[in-house]
Design a protein around this nucleic acid. Sequence first.
DNA 1: CTGTTAGCGCTTTCAT
DNA 2: ATGAAAGCGCTAACAG
Lengths: 335, 335
Amino acid sequence: MATIVEVARIAGVSTSTVSHVLNGTRPVQPATRKRVVAAIEETGYRQDAVARAMRRSRTDSIGLVVSDAGEPAFAEMVHGVEHAAAARGLTLVLANSAEDPEREERAVSTLLARRVDGLILAHCANSGRAVRARLEADDARPAVLLDRVFDGSPHDQVGADNRETMRRLVGHLRDAGHRRFLLVAGDQRVPTLVERRQGFRDAIPDAELAEQTTVDAVDPASVRAGVAAALRAGRATCVIAASTPLAVASLECLRDAGLSTPEQVAFAAFDGFSHSDLFRPTITTVRQPAFEMGEAAVALLLDRIASPDASPRTLRLNQRLELRESTEGHRLRAD
Amino acid sequence: MATIVEVARIAGVSTSTVSHVLNGTRPVQPATRKRVVAAIEETGYRQDAVARAMRRSRTDSIGLVVSDAGEPAFAEMVHGVEHAAAARGLTLVLANSAEDPEREERAVSTLLARRVDGLILAHCANSGRAVRARLEADDARPAVLLDRVFDGSPHDQVGADNRETMRRLVGHLRDAGHRRFLLVAGDQRVPTLVERRQGFRDAIPDAELAEQTTVDAVDPASVRAGVAAALRAGRATCVIAASTPLAVASLECLRDAGLSTPEQVAFAAFDGFSHSDLFRPTITTVRQPAFEMGEAAVALLLDRIASPDASPRTLRLNQRLELRESTEGHRLRAD
DNA sequence: CTGTTAGCGCTTTCAT
DNA sequence: ATGAAAGCGCTAACAG
């Protein structure tokens, strides 16, 4: 490959002039520029981004670590991050921690070693303090936490308004007459799921708290077992799943139990499914604004890079409550 | 940040020794090594991957360009690529062409400028020759084509056995008595969809060819119009959609036409949906081995990097035909 | 408006 | 077993 030196030689100018036409970093006489452009053409010269990054100590790239690249919601966030990054001329370096704290720490270290200009991180469920330390280290770059946000985090964050939306959802279901819920709440080490559970609590009057059932299990098998047991106990008129995997497990249980939706048990899910319209019955769902969250994370990151000392912000994007057949129709008798 | 020079100074050795300790590239006296390690510890030194890449002229990274990061199938391929890359200590640089040839070309150029060690590319539908030229340029790196494979391509490729699987699917439906199909074939500039259409042709006896209907429209609205018209013409007993977006459009039409599945019209789709089990009726689907295709692409790429002169290979992974309710049940009377 | 030149941090001959 | 030193290709003072 031709280098900038060769281009300069052919154009009969210095390398610095070539560099400046390349980057538009200082005025260049039209005639000179023309010769340079011709030389570039002739040699098929291409800038070496690695050398450039080395010299400028910025890479024009950002790193993204997701906790589960297999989940559609995270795939959408990746999509959003890529979109926003590309729009700003940044390339995206992607890593997946697969919910493993060790891999998460490795991924962050690798990205930092690659000198990404900034980092977006969707923490895994049980991520240790090693990562946090890594993000604070003196070779670290600005970081934005995505989806799983923490109170009092020193970082910028973007999440969803989980608590409020769950409150709204339960409110709606109560209006429809439901009083006894089964909340499939999931892994309570995940902030998102904690927030959803809080929203649930918010919406239930103290006097009725005792009538509610919750399943906190983590692995699918235990979830299924928990839900099945709760259904057998048979008090809930409505099941709420706090995430897609939990929804899948729950729906399987409902089916196995031979319970029809919404006639016998109403059902609603957070995060939902890609083509919910095609399900029968269609399922009431809280749509995560995943793509937009990815975009927002990039925006926050760039703000942070621009002003490193501004105080950290936490953004919460609104989720959309999409009411469908699974929570519809029958009006329960007042208890 | 501490550099290798500082570490060397503190350990009282040369930078070359530090480098060799770091990379295990030549034997080092245990005592010396210990001092180096201590100095690394003390300074919190971290290797700078950019400087390293510059000097070695390899980045230990690979680039991936997908044509539609929003499609679940591509998201799965990204996942597979990331998985295989990480397992081999490579980082992944991700770009999305969003089915736009210009963005595709830009993405390839950017990745090449970043000196990725190799490239995986899922061509967009109408990708021009500019990209092809770019892949051949003298600063290019080895490339593997993903999903959308071309006869006589000079590159390694990994796709799916679309033609065979479509043949099998139609064979099965014929066994069930169907004779008149509506194939929603989609954009015939996409090799995948061409192959599926070929498989369809393969499975239909010449004498019956005239009885078949096909919709080749590209944008969703035209697809819906085409399908609606074909349904009104009313000859098909079975609809086959060649991709997920086509399936969505088709199902909407079936619903709008008030046709029940499978009683009035059978239905099957390629690529399918994430949670098909939860649909009612459950839908017969051809599952793309997307994750595995991503993994395979990485394997091919590394083989290629290892032996640049081996002749190019095209891998076709098997798809899985998952028969479900939407093509089940009723036995058609023989025509 | 243009050129000279000193590195960025690292790996890797070539010596010893 | 270790060290000295030459760059990788580029940018950005600094000087004219």
